[in-house]
């Protein structure tokens, strides 16, 4: 049986959106699929040595604001943070980011960096969009080892034959 193929476009660079492409890609690779992720626009920094992605609660009205510590009833509270606070108070995004990281760690979710390492170990092709690199001024040395470099046509040539195509 020919290998199934999956093509993903990762175009977003916030912490919450950093997970889906790496989770889906590592799972698909574990299921013996050939996987390529095309990192373009704001998705591109996810290939840098250090991932600095953050969440922005002000731009995500549906995001639950919960505390990853304390008694169970306390942790269950979804804090109603006014937009005027989440969108204006300095450091709020950093606070929300560290809370999300703690929450994910408590629940046994791998970090984005760990998921990326697993993807590389499983043979997932992480492709940096050449055009975005030029626009934002990134160089090949800015990215982790194992990343490949291509443009839209090269990626679409693979995607055209893929069984699953997703945009994250």
């Amino acid at each position: 049986m020919a290998k199934k193929k999956m093509a993903i476009i990762a175009a977003q660079g916030s912490l919450d959106w950093a997970y889906p492409p790496f989770i889906l890609a590592s799972t698909a690779a574990a299921m013996d699929m050939e996987v390529k992720i095309f990192f373009t626009f704001y998705g591109l920094p996810l290939l840098k040595h250090k991932i600095k992605a953050k969440v922005t609660p002000a731009a995500n009205p549906a995001m639950p604001m919960k505390m990853p510590f304390g008694p169970k009833a306390f942790q269950a509270i979804d804090w109603p943070i006014p937009h005027a606070v989440s969108g204006v108070v300095p450091g709020f995004d950093s606070l929300a980011t560290s809370l999300m990281k703690k929450q994910f760690k408590n629940k046994g979710v791998a970090t984005v960096t760990e998921l990326r390492e697993m993807c590389l170990a499983l043979g997932v092709d992480l492709i940096a969009c050449q055009m975005t690199m030029d626009v934002f001024g990134f160089e090949e040395k800015d990215f982790v080892e194992g990343v490949s470099f291509a443009g839209a046509a090269a990626f679409l040539d693979f995607a055209a034959e893929a069984d699953i195509q997703l945009m994250c």
Binding site: S26, T27, A30, K107, G108, V109, L115, M118, A121, L122
Partner: peptide, 14 residues
Amino acid sequence: SGMSCPLPVVKSKM
């Protein structure tokens, strides 16, 4: 034990 998606599948595969 204690691991969330996708770790059980990925670790089992490895």
